[in-house]
Amino acid sequence: MKYALKFLVSAALLVAGANCVFAQLKSDVAETKPKVVSRVTKVDDAALMAALKPNGKPLVVNFWATWCAPCIEEYPDLVKIDAEYGDKIDLVTVSLDDVADIDTGVPDFLKRMNAEMPVYLLVSQDETALIAKIRKDWSGGLPFTVIYGKDGSEAYFKEGKFKSDVLRAEIDKTLGK
């Protein structure tokens, strides 16, 4: 009887311990789940304009390049905003880097940033026309960030480096918070 009780207690402890270890393992697996690093898709003017149509939620678009110092400085904020807002918004970025960097410079940078948002690399046939289509009075200076409401109307734009709190407030406004 005494041995049976000892056996039961030991077995219970073993099961509990195993559960703990298993739970810890599960949590470790969740934490170390590999991130889906942004894929860079080459687009022309028409494909970019099609990609800039909101899909039932606000769309944040950032134009940048690895050669643009303020773009690089603000990119970590975009990564944070993308993670924080999750499915509430769509966030895409458009790189103006040389197409030769599509497999090297641009993805290397995105990997360092832990970026997960869709990234387009624009190969434009007519930059002047495209810039004017995106915003009539945009000079083409980078970085450039624009928020579209879910109906496609422009809710906010910023030429030059954005302020993180201002961009968040504008996204919230567009979400109707």
């Binding site: 390049a65 303020p70 930059e127 002047t128 945009w138 000079s139 083409g140 200076g141 980078l142 970085p143």
Partner: peptide, 11 residues
């Protein structure tokens, strides 16, 4: 008479 292009923003 007018053509825009992508470039660095004047700081």
């Amino acid at each position: 008479t007018r053509a825009n292009a992508f470039g660095c923003t004047i700081k």
